[in-house]
């Protein structure tokens, strides 16, 4: 195995672990991973106050560089996830500094990146304790919106 492959594997593995531990810290009912990556990396379920489970998809990206306010992902991935009936989140793991960032994937983000054919910038929020609390509220709201639709 080449050094580059090994480094890439390590970076990817750290991002996986950070993501899984993060969702477990939100008391997820389940955090599921596909054996072979298909539409997204993780499917996460959180219990809601009505006794049901709110499900959402997560695309995990790893980086070793400081994360600014947004992160570029391929337009194809963005289209697939933002136009799905399951709410989809982009989770970016700075595996060097142990920081996580998240952003919901929404169709309107494509308009802001119209000049770039291949990638779309997704706005991100760093996950700290305050952001965790807000994220719990957003997830509850996502679940309510999906029910109302």
């Amino acid at each position: 195995m080449s050094a580059n492959n090994s480094q890439a594997q390590m970076v990817g593995r750290r991002a996986e672990l950070m993501a899984e531990l993060f969702f477990q810290s939100l008391d997820a009912a389940y955090v599921a991973r596909f054996e072979h990556a298909l539409a997204f990396d993780l499917l996460v379920g959180l219990s809601n106050p009505q006794g049901g489970i709110d499900n959402f998809a997560v695309e995990v990206k790893a980086t070793q560089q400081p994360v600014r306010s947004g992160f570029r992902i391929s337009r194809k991935i963005h289209e697939r996830l933002s136009h799905s009936n399951t709410p989809a989140m982009l989770l970016v793991a700075d595996v060097k500094q142990d920081r996580l960032y998240y952003g919901w994937l929404r169709p309107e983000q494509a308009a802001a990146s119209r000049s770039d054919r291949d990638t779309i910038v997704v706005p991100l929020t760093e996950i700290d304790e305050g952001a965790k609390a807000r994220l719990r509220e957003e997830l509850a709201a996502q679940g309510s919106e999906a029910m109302a639709a």
């Binding site: 477990q24 955090v31 599921a32 054996e35």
Partner: peptide
Amino acid sequence: MTSELRDVTGFR
């Protein structure tokens, strides 16, 4: 194409 879905909670 199908792919197995595996719960990865646990083993924290």
